[in-house]
Design a protein around this nucleic acid. Structure first.
Lengths: 125, 125
DNA sequence: TCCTCGTATTGATGAACATCTATGTGTGGA
DNA sequence: TCCACACATAGATGTTCATCAATACGAGGA
């Protein structure tokens, strides 16, 4: 899903440099990518992603997250919904709790699309 | 410059995986990065960046760009201003024309911050 | 100097959005 | 069966934003 999301295969993305800069983006491509970036373009949501990712087991429930913000629970819930609906967070309910998990591949695809593999050659991890 | 822009050195960014996911983003970091992403999170601006980058000599004047959109010249000018003020486009005036050029490093830094080198290690899950 | 052309600025307008309060929904325990 | 808890949804509100028409600015040519 994440590959078809951006219509890019790993091979293509790493082939040269940033797809964004390599060739002119079509209107459709631009309108596919923009909402993803828009979902990311919020300080609260950036930190939510970051918090979820760095939490134990790579997942966190709303109760783990809400405390880190000076915002109400519905607001946090709203931001999580935005991230989930765009495909950046996975959701799973267990008992009374709802756990979120970062969809790393989706984020990686986005990063490659924007910044390309510029730094990638030699990176390793 | 681009490094101070995100407060990350290349070494740090490549060290592991996406900085966004590697450790919890501070509030300040999140509020630094979010406006950059917000500037990118628009179909018109994404295509503008792409068009500028793929233009001859890597630069283009407003007159080269406006034709590609069904928008008025002031609107294009506005979007270019947004991209320039956030540090994603360079501006240089020559005679009557104003030329824009993509600040590739800034974009690369952003890409690394978001997607990191994750995909590089072997992809997928 | 005056005119034309390329680009930027201003001010207005409607849409999108972040946030809140209030309330709904579903689950587990007593 | 009922209550408490975790989370989601609904509706309202103030703000931000994309866009346009009108206008200003500034450089080169006649």
């Amino acid at each position: 899903m994440s590959k078809s999301l951006l219509e890019l295969t790993p091979v293509q993305t790493v082939a040269c440099c940033s797809p964004l800069l390599r060739e002119t983006l079509s209107i459709e491509q631009a309108e596919t990518v923009a909402p993803l970036l828009k979902a990311l373009a919020d300080p609260v949501r950036l930190r939510l992603l970051s918090l979820v990712a760095s939490h134990a087991e790579g997942e966190a429930c709303v109760c783990d997250l809400a405390g880190a913000f000076d915002l109400t629970q519905p607001t946090i819930s709203h931001h999580l919904k935005v991230l989930h609906e765009i495909g950046l967070l996975d959701r799973s309910k267990r008992g009374v709790w709802v756990y979120y998990r970062v969809r790393t591949e989706a984020l990686a695809d986005l990063g490659v699309l924007i910044g390309g593999g510029a730094r990638v050659a030699g990176a390793g991890r």
